[in-house]
Amino acid sequence: MNKPSAQSASPPWDDASIVAIRRDMLRFARMQLRDSGAAEDMVQEALMAAMTSAKGFAGRSAFKTWMFAILRNKIVDHIRASAREIPATSLVGERELDAGLEDFDVLFDRRGLWNPEDRPATWSDPEASFEQDAFWTVFDLCMNKLPEHIARVYTMRELLELDTAEICAELGITSNNCFVILHRARLGLRECLENRWFQGEGR
């Protein structure tokens, strides 16, 4: 399988590389889909699509970027297809939307100022945290703690990089609701990361 002459031009399809990248792709897909089975299927399809076509691949350094672009496109197709099958209102029901939106109001007092115990603290060196596996485990956990419909909109926005207009149209919600949901996602995720990671830094 290893042809030294082709090394610089072909993707690294050795077992270790596949295992490592599959792990990272699964993290991404699970965060987006919240369904392990669907996530595994997407990753499998993306890996197979990549293996059967080296088109678009521009060297080893770009390997991951290329793989993740394929995965992203598969997930976007999957979401668009299911949005066509399932009526938008059952994806994000209005009642479901209202529930969970109030939860974070408890962070503020009656005047709308931070409660002393919830006031954001200074985070030291987030870049260093990004290098630690344990940080990403906490990030996964915090993402999972978000209500499902909130996480869905947030991951469509930040992981799939869809613009707000498309997300709203896909889910059949108003852009104002979209903004509110994204705001709640950021409030919740930030709060969780501070409590579960940055406050206990140096453990």
């Binding site: 990272d24 991404f28 991951k64 985070w123 987030p126 990004f130 940080f135």
Partner: peptide, 16 residues
């Protein structure tokens, strides 16, 4: 920081 973290997730650049 959240933005930077999700950018890393998009690139598969999570952990050492």
């Amino acid at each position: 920081v959240l933005r930077q973290a999700t950018a890393r997730l998009r690139e598969g650049d999570t952990g050492g």
